[in-house]
Amino acid sequence: MTATTAAGPTVKTAPKPKLKTSAMIASFADPGQKTTPAPFGHALVKAAQENEKIVGLTADLGKYTDMHIFAKAFPERFFQMGMAEQLLFGAAAGMAQTGVVPFASTYSVFAARRAYDFLCLDAAEPNLNVNIVGGLPGLTTGYGPSHQATEDMAIFRGMPNLTIVDPCDSVDIEQAVPQLAASEGPTYLRLLRGNVPTVLDEYDYTFELGKAKVLRGGNDVVFVSSGLMTMRALQAAKELAAHNVDVAVVHTPTIKPFDAETVLGEINTDRLVVTLENHTVVGGLFETVAAAAARAGVAKRILPVALPDEFLHAGALPTLHERYGLSVDRIVAAVLGAL
């Protein structure tokens, strides 16, 4: 599916290259960046080769959530539920009750907004091993509010028993999938699909469910980030070095349960604390960190880099990331302004 709505202002003379709303699932990889194709689909196949209980389901979005890789490898363990998200997750819960381990994919907006009641009561209350795979988390599509799950973590954080994972890149996803399958209760993965940037392989890093990791140290600023914003945080840290600002980056891919111990240990210093998330400023990483700090009596100012509390525009992803403050340039400017 493609659309051709122009995003930027029309300039009559000396036309700039027109950025277009990209395909629904736009890549947020930078030009020339190292990427890995469909890391979730391949990781699920690998996990399923080792664990015969794993099954895959989708609600008419197999191709758009990389579930088609699994469907091709294990056709008899793949279940197409049609464009029916309540059925998708109710059925996933029913399957889990019989002892199989379902991974059920759709877009995050539909999982969080449309099927919440089914996930909450059918999967989370009985603490079943239902793994929700949500595509297009936060601002990863230019299609506007119908597809942009800018508040998915805010919605899901209130659900007891649910583990929430916001992976940075293909490394996170590949390592997370088997751990999600092995963990007992329900999980929600903020899926990055297609050609997903590969970033964390350059760091001494492994994904551990429930753990935050310090990716780099720094004396002036501490970034606490999750999801694709960890990639941006690492890029911004490099640029800030040119401004003689030394930045540490703490990656917190598990949003719930939150590794408050590691994060509080890092923010309880004289450094400027910045949270970075691909999510509305309401109810996501910023508020998770702020609540953990307040509860522990850590009185720190925390600067949020997050999406605003509003319905976002349609347009091209680079335009929108720049507009709403997720781009590296905007991060660097925000930090320099706050120091």
Binding site: E76, F79, L87, G90, A91, G94, M95, V100, D122, P126
Partner: peptide, 23 residues
Amino acid sequence: ISGGSLGHGLTIAVGTALGLRLQ
């Protein structure tokens, strides 16, 4: 199952039936 939020039972039943048949 935990019923009560009406309209859930048959969706769960579909999954239960699929899971049992698969195994």
